[in-house]
Amino acid sequence: MSAAVLFYGFNLGAPDDMGWAFLRHGPGSEREFDWEANAEADGGNEYQPWMARAILLGTGVPEDDIPLDVPEGFLARRCGVQILTFGHSNTLFYGIALAGTVQWADDWSPKSVVPASTLDGHEPLARALDALGVKPRQANPAWILAPSEF
């Protein structure tokens, strides 16, 4: 089955074959981030929950308020962003999107979407990227249309 995702935000790249699509900044930026180390210690397959946790902590959400397994929607409600994966099961890419802009479609459920050319309110994206300690190689947030086959 073919699928696609449309979102407004940044492509963060892939941790494996293609490499991350960001530059590191902030304290300890020359080494692996805690969220990366935790994901790799967990088998290296799921960066999303560790990225979400880092964003929540980095934007001031107390650790006691963060569920062990961050449920879908929790990050969007608290921080205004979503972390998503796309690509192929052999090479997963990660993206960070402004909450509410992620649209999925597949062979059986095409969608008609008319996105705004740009969106205001990039602050949630900027705060989340700071919390992760990354600066995307992509200069500005943009609408990204990407394939997704799992």
Rank of each mutant, 00 (worst) to 15 (best):
D107K: 13
G87H: 00
E149W: 08
T59F: 03
A126P: 00
L75Y: 04
K111L: 05
P115S: 02
A99G: 09
M1E: 09
V134N: 09
D16R: 14
Y47M: 01
D17Y: 13
D16V: 10
I144M: 07
P67M: 06
D42A: 15
L92G: 03
T91S: 06
E40W: 10
M18Q: 15
R78K: 15
G28M: 08
A39N: 09
G87D: 00
F10S: 09
D107M: 12
F22W: 15
F22Y: 15
L12V: 09
P141L: 11
V70M: 04
V70H: 03
I55T: 06
A105F: 02
A3L: 03
W20H: 13
G73Q: 08
W108E: 11
L6H: 11
T59D: 06
A97W: 04
N90T: 07
A52V: 01
R137T: 15
D69S: 13
M51E: 11
N11P: 07
G95A: 12
L119I: 12
G26Y: 02
H25M: 14
L75R: 08
A99I: 03
W35I: 08
Q103I: 07
W20Q: 08
N38H: 10
D107A: 13
L129W: 08
D65R: 11
D120S: 11
A52N: 11
G60T: 13
A128E: 12
W35Y: 10
L84K: 07
F7H: 04
Q48H: 02
A99P: 11
F33H: 09
M18K: 15
A142Y: 03
I144V: 12
V61Q: 07
D16I: 02
